[in-house]
């Protein structure tokens, strides 16, 4: 329980600082081009790094390519692609996953 509030305090710090630092320091300054490029690639890299093991590595079974989570991800990808809406993607994913558990 104490750990939980430690997690919250730490997350608050590492979330708040990057959000406000550019607004406080940056007006009138420029980040190096290469650094800017690396930073812009962190988003797709971390999202894929979190997603892929969720889909492929079931904690209870051997790794495999065609499992219910991969199947549920297909309509999720299509809906996210077509609608560009986070909400629509989450709804589609949950619906597909619910249907596949039956």
């Amino acid at each position: 329980m104490k750990d939980l509030w430690l997690v919250i305090a730490g997350m608050t710090l590492v979330t708040f600082l990057p959000r406000v630092a550019p607004l406080l320091l940056l007006p009138g300054r420029k980040i190096p081009k290469l650094a800017e490029r690396w930073l812009s690639l962190v988003a797709p890299a971390i999202l894929a790094a979190l997603l892929t093991p969720e889909l492929l590595l079931d904690r209870t079974a051997a790794p495999m390519l065609l499992n219910p989570r991969v199947l549920a991800a297909i309509p999720t990808f299509l809906v996210a692609w077509k609608t560009k809406s986070l909400f629509a993607a989450v709804v589609a994913g949950m619906a597909a996953s619910a249907l596949l558990t039956y």
């Binding site: 988003a43 797709p44 999202l47 894929a48 979190l50 997603l51 969720e54 889909l55 989570r69 549920a72 991800a73 999720t76 990808f77 996210a80 692609w81 560009k84 809406s85 986070l86 909400f87 629509a88 993607a89 989450v90 589609a92 994913g93 949950m94 619906a95 597909a96 996953s97 619910a98 249907l99 558990t101 039956y102």
Partner: peptide, 18 residues
């Protein structure tokens, strides 16, 4: 699981990733 809740997180990653 019957509500698909266990897939809310991966679906969110997909929606942000694309």
């Amino acid at each position: 699981k019957a509500w698909g809740l266990d897939f809310a997180l991966p679906a969110m990653f997909v929606g942000l990733l694309l």
